[in-house]
Write a protein that binds this DNA or RNA. Sequence first.
DNA 1: TCACCGATAGAAAGCGCTTGCTACGGCTGT
DNA 2: ACAGCCGTAGCAAGCGCTTTCTATCGGTGA
Lengths: 355, 355
Amino acid sequence: MTVTLADVAARARVSPATVSRVLNGNYPVAASTRERVLRAVDDLDYVLNGPASSLAAATSDLVGILVNDIADPFFGIMAGAAQTEIGGPGDGSGRAGGEKLAVVCNTGGSPERELTYLTLLQRQRAAAVVLTGGAVEDPAHQAAVSAKLTKLADAGTRVVLCGRPPLPDGEAVVAALAFDNRGGGRRLTEHLLSLGHRRIGYVAGPLERTTTRHRLEGHRDALRAAGLVGDEERLTVHGPYDRRSGYDATLELLRREPEVTAVVAANDTVALGASAAIRDRGLRIPEDISVAGFDDLPFSVDAVPALTTVRLPLFEAGARAGRLAMGKETPPPGGIATIAAELMVRGSTAPPRGQ
Amino acid sequence: MTVTLADVAARARVSPATVSRVLNGNYPVAASTRERVLRAVDDLDYVLNGPASSLAAATSDLVGILVNDIADPFFGIMAGAAQTEIGGPGDGSGRAGGEKLAVVCNTGGSPERELTYLTLLQRQRAAAVVLTGGAVEDPAHQAAVSAKLTKLADAGTRVVLCGRPPLPDGEAVVAALAFDNRGGGRRLTEHLLSLGHRRIGYVAGPLERTTTRHRLEGHRDALRAAGLVGDEERLTVHGPYDRRSGYDATLELLRREPEVTAVVAANDTVALGASAAIRDRGLRIPEDISVAGFDDLPFSVDAVPALTTVRLPLFEAGARAGRLAMGKETPPPGGIATIAAELMVRGSTAPPRGQ
DNA sequence: TCACCGATAGAAAGCGCTTGCTACGGCTGT
DNA sequence: ACAGCCGTAGCAAGCGCTTTCTATCGGTGA
């Protein structure tokens, strides 16, 4: 039915071994022979059998990119950038060589799915795995992931973390690119404080996520440095990283403390929901309440007023992770790099009323 | 080094065949034997060799989802929904059975990459392939894709189109779910016409894309029905589906025709850019110029003013495509279903000045 | 002129798993 | 009590490719 290597060999009047070598280009083959083989491949419309090839060679060209939420541009941008570097199809490399199949796997933020995907990729003997975004902080799960990654690494899979903190024992991992969520969070709140805000609400991400915790810690570091302590818990509401959650949490925040003059959101999407809630309550941004986000997604600059936020170089980080996964770039010293977060001050933040 | 089936068999004191059957659950095995095998699997931390399994069984559990732009929520939402249905990890099905590895492949809108991904998936003997979003209209490329899909289908891969028009000869495909872009585009422009707009600019998507063409055709159908002809070309600017393009194109539009009273954008992201351009020119939305988008992405309702747009049930469509790909749902009659687009009238459109 | 060498090509042994077929008991039915 | 079955388990033949080792052949240097 399907065309096999042997068929091509027969048509080109060479041995299967020779066809394999032409296709892989890792062994000298006379130009004339090569040409004959290539023509046979074309004539027969031959497509390599991936599983057979992977089995025999004990390697595969699969590269997995794990994301928490594929519908969120935060991950889409990183994954897209990584995929570009990994090349996959169309990297101009022609038929031979480093043609990897970069695929993104959506865990939906679920630890079990993350683990299952890792197992599946392990089954496939993936060439590399890139884990993006914050990790769940449950110790059992972290241990399970670490163990899995170690096994993957032992089997020759290159593991890269992007936008995720390094593993406790970073041995298994080629490199970890961590965003400076804490520093970004701190600078954002410092900005608000410097404008004169004292009652700042915080719409945080889900509990038990490193990203959530780090951003929140930065925020509280700034508060503490300004001598504002005691109210943090009351002025913090947790929820998922989505618009709806931002809306609801902000309403809750305004109920708890109507005198709030600024709302910091876990990310830009949440900030959008927060803004909507504020407006629905008949308040103006930034005159009545300032709003700030995190990530600087593409739509944030188009919000009205434009959203003050913390820019994360998602594309650059994703691209770098992709290169690292391909071994095209040397890992940072110690395998760990912290990626700076830049405060973007825009129209959604201003001094509080009466300042 | 790595643990193989034979190792497990030895430890459980059975034959490799029995282990395989326990793992696949497709052959009667005595309960006591099964248990012994399962324990051995656990003890040894055995992970199936995917390539070997795929080779022997001549099938694989890979399901590919092709998207044009993974950073665009339009695709992210569909892909996420499809992935959920395909189950992949964590569908609660336990270890055995229909555990598929759903992966999304980012073509970046490039025909070559699309083809290469298809080939790669063919190599891997993918169980199913879902193509999302508009197709490139180049005849040569369409023929190539058709041929490829036919070959995939012949090899037993289930092919599903989601948000993409059916193939000329739909035989190769399990099902095609097409959005009613034309109808949506028409209704959107009819809405604007009914408000009294007569000079309507159109920021279209890239040329040679089915989505672009269908939406534009709907728009022009409405204009024609209203007797407005002759100015379409001048009032249409093409560009990619991104914010930047919307911004630039709108500036160009305002240059060509300062008297424009409404701008229809190719999609919501473009509409955001268009809005920014309009505001930067010192004009108000919707008082001076109405703006409308397409897709109803999550952020559109939070735009200020909220964006009038055409809602596409992206999640539902993606989920259905996923089910179709898994054979969990019977295809629509003829394998073709048109998915309705619903006009969402919001604050960004209003009667033109002086009406 | 002859042993030797470099450049190519082929033979064949797997890679780890699936599965058709066979083998073996203990039961059932008559 | 014996043929025939059902329920299980094992044997062994591949699946299609890669790769090591071997064979061949036309030069080359002494």
